[in-house]
Structures are given as structure tokens and as C-alpha cells.
Computed example of a mutant assay.
Amino acid sequence: MDQAVGWQSPYFPKIFERYDRADFAQEFLRRSPAYRSSYAAAAAAPGADRARLFRRLASRWGLVFRLRS
């Protein structure tokens, strides 16, 4: 099992050496309580409400959600 590297570890900066802008954006969103709450609400909503909430979420955070087939 992999263990998380503490931020005070000398290895911590190495984690981010290969990150591009999309990786940093994903990390930001993953750690944002506001985004996580909005995403959870959209994911739990039924039918048309779900689509509307995901459109609103995408607009607010500048995202594009790929459609699943």
C-alpha cells in the first residue's frame, strides 16, 4: 500500500515536477470544499436536474464534462 508523503518531506516537491496545468487544476478542485460540495450535489440529483446542475458546475469552474456513451 502506498503511503502519502508528508508536505515536510524532502520528497514532497518531487511529486509535482511532472505536473502540467491540468494536473494542478485537478489538484485544486479535488481539495476545494466548494467544488466537492457542488459536484456531490450535481451527481446526486435526478435526471434533468442533474444535467442542469452539471452545466452550472461546468460554467462556474470552467470545466468540460465528456459525455459517456
Rank of each mutant, 00 (worst) to 15 (best):
Tyr11Arg: 13
Lys14Tyr: 05
Lys14Leu: 13
Arg50Phe: 05
Ile15His: 03
Phe54Cys: 03
Gln8Val: 00
Arg68Asn: 00
Arg56Trp: 12
Asp49Phe: 01
Tyr19Glu: 00
Ala51Ser: 14
Arg30Glu: 14
Arg68Ala: 06
Trp7Gln: 07
Ala58Glu: 15
Arg36Ser: 02
Phe24Thr: 08
Val5Ala: 11
Arg30Cys: 02
Asp23Met: 05
Val5Ile: 15
Ser9Pro: 15
Leu29Val: 03
Ala44Val: 13
Phe28Ser: 07
Ala44Trp: 06
Ala45Trp: 05
Ala4Lys: 07
Arg60Pro: 00
Ala40Asp: 10
Ser9Met: 12
Ala48Met: 03
Ala58Pro: 15
Phe28Leu: 12
Arg36Glu: 10
Ala45Met: 06
Ala42Arg: 03
Ile15Asn: 03
Tyr39Leu: 10
Pro10Phe: 01
Leu57Trp: 05
Leu63Asn: 10
Ser69Cys: 05
Tyr11Pro: 03
Ala51Asp: 15
Ala4His: 13
Gly62Ile: 10
Trp7Cys: 02
Arg68Phe: 09
Arg36His: 03
Leu57Ile: 06
Gly47Glu: 07
Arg18Thr: 01
Ala41Leu: 10
Met1Asn: 10
Phe12Asp: 04
Ala58Trp: 11
Gln8Asp: 10
Tyr35Lys: 01
Val5Asp: 06
Leu57Ala: 14
Ala22Ile: 01
Arg68Glu: 09
Trp61Val: 01
Arg31Pro: 00
Ala4Asp: 12
Ala58Lys: 04
Ser38Gln: 15
Arg36Val: 14
Phe16Arg: 03
Arg60Gln: 15
Glu27Trp: 00
Ile15Pro: 01
Met1Trp: 08
Asp2Asn: 06
Leu29Gln: 02
Glu27Leu: 04
Gly47Asn: 13
Ala41Met: 09
Arg56Tyr: 04
Arg66Lys: 10
Phe54Tyr: 13
Ala40Lys: 15
Ala4Pro: 06
Pro10Ala: 12
Arg66Cys: 00
Leu53Met: 15
Ala42Ser: 05
Ala25Asp: 09
Gly62Phe: 09
Arg60Ala: 15
Trp61Phe: 15
Asp49Arg: 15
Ala51His: 12
Ala51Gln: 09
Ala48Ile: 05
Gln26Tyr: 02
Gln3Thr: 09
Ala41Ile: 04
Ala58Ile: 00
Gly62Cys: 08
Ala34Leu: 11
Pro33Asp: 13
Ser37His: 09
Ser32Lys: 08
Ala44Met: 11
Arg60Gly: 07
Ala43Arg: 14
Gly6Asn: 13
Gly47Phe: 12
Leu53Ile: 03
Glu17Leu: 02
Met1Tyr: 06
Trp61Lys: 07
Trp61Gln: 01
Trp7Phe: 14
Pro13Gly: 11
Ala25Tyr: 08
Gln26Met: 06
Trp7Glu: 07
